[in-house]
Simulated assay, not measured.
Amino acid sequence: MTAPAVPQPAVPDLAPAAPETAVPETAVPQDLHAELLDCLQVNLAWLARSEHGVSPLALGARLEFAPREDAPGALPTVEPATGTHVQHTAAALGLLVTSRVTLPPSTGTPPADPGTVYVVADAFHLPWVPYHGHAHMDHSFLLGRDAAGRAVVRDGYHNDTPYGPARPGTWTLTEAELAAALPDGARAFRVAPAGPPRDATAVVPATPAAVEAYVRAYREHPDREAALARLTLETWLLARARRLHAAHRAAAGIPAPGAEEHVASWGKLAEQTFLAHRRVQRGRPEPAGPLGRLAELLHADTRVFAAPDAGGGDDGALRTVVAEEAAAVLRVTAAELLAGRPLTEVPGFGSFRMVDIVERVEERLRVEFDADDLVPENLHDLDGLCRIAARAHRETP
């Protein structure tokens, strides 16, 4: 689906030239933030931004470490399955997938009804991306028709690959070119607005057990070249997700002291892992550093983005946590609450929402509020919630 954005050697691209760009680059939204998005996210984000006014940074609201295994014994990966990723990306942007159509092999003809479809196909056959003729992976683009009925492809992907740079653009294709780009068929999705973006700002901390299992799988895998090749992609995905989350927080006015340095450390780890892979490819000894550094940075995510310190002394961090959980329940931004908006002025606030907020804060901080503290004067504004949250945090063993 993606490839690491780390320094790569030049590789001659023997694929035919891409179709001629038909629309100037200014057609690409200036605030697409394409360099922060992967090849499936970016074109749903383009659709959401240009047609529904939703910021692509909504995709960075939730940060979660959730590795999965494609098969028993396989290396764990943080790269989600394509179908799941499309569904979650759409929901995070406030979009609903309304239909799915399988475009048959050897034809690029989209469904007859008008409008833009979001398409997932094999990048190996797509002439406008550098993977063309080189690598098989799922890749997305937007497909529509111009006034003359010609196929128009929009692709916002921005990355530096082993086969050259991918940059956002718009291309007009003949019917023959479109059919040649989809020799194995493709999956086409239509989406519609479904309300505001789904996710409030939140971080699901990586548990020590999950980090240890993930790192151990890569450390103990017998094929070191295969393990490091996969780990190169993994660290790129992890670094990109943290850059996106930090950008979302900055735009939303939600502080995360140390985020800039932390994100830079993830970028350095992606480069370090790529270099380790290249050394092993050449028969040289594997450097010992990347896997230890990977564990350190996964644990540091919580310290930088999620929880107050263990003693509860970081009032700013605790206040941010409480605001994020209240915002998630009330479907507003944490920045609004941190700026002083009373909870009682948010439409829909009431006893049921108040209980939801309390339960979410308790779960996030792993504390239990004193029953005597659960009175209206403590629960109707952010200051009151922070007072009882700090007290519960101090009293938790």
Rank of each mutant, 00 (worst) to 15 (best):
M1H: 13
T2Q: 12
A5N: 15
P9Y: 05
P12T: 13
H33P: 00
L47K: 09
S50P: 07
S50Y: 04
G53P: 00
P56D: 07
E64L: 14
D70P: 04
P76M: 11
T89L: 01
A90S: 02
A90D: 06
G94Y: 11
A112H: 10
V117N: 07
V120P: 11
V120D: 08
P130Q: 09
H136E: 11
L143E: 09
G149R: 00
V152R: 11
D155R: 02
Y157D: 12
R167K: 13
E175T: 10
L182S: 08
G185N: 03
D199I: 02
A206Y: 07
T207D: 01
V215L: 00
L238Q: 00
I254V: 15
V263F: 05
E271G: 15
T273Y: 10
R278L: 14
V280I: 09
G283E: 08
E286M: 12
L297E: 01
A306H: 12
G311T: 10
G312A: 02
G316W: 03
L318N: 03
R319A: 15
L338S: 08
G350M: 08
G350T: 05
S351M: 06
I357F: 12
H380S: 09
C386G: 03
R387H: 09
R387I: 10
I388F: 05
A389H: 02
A390M: 05
A392S: 11
T396Q: 11
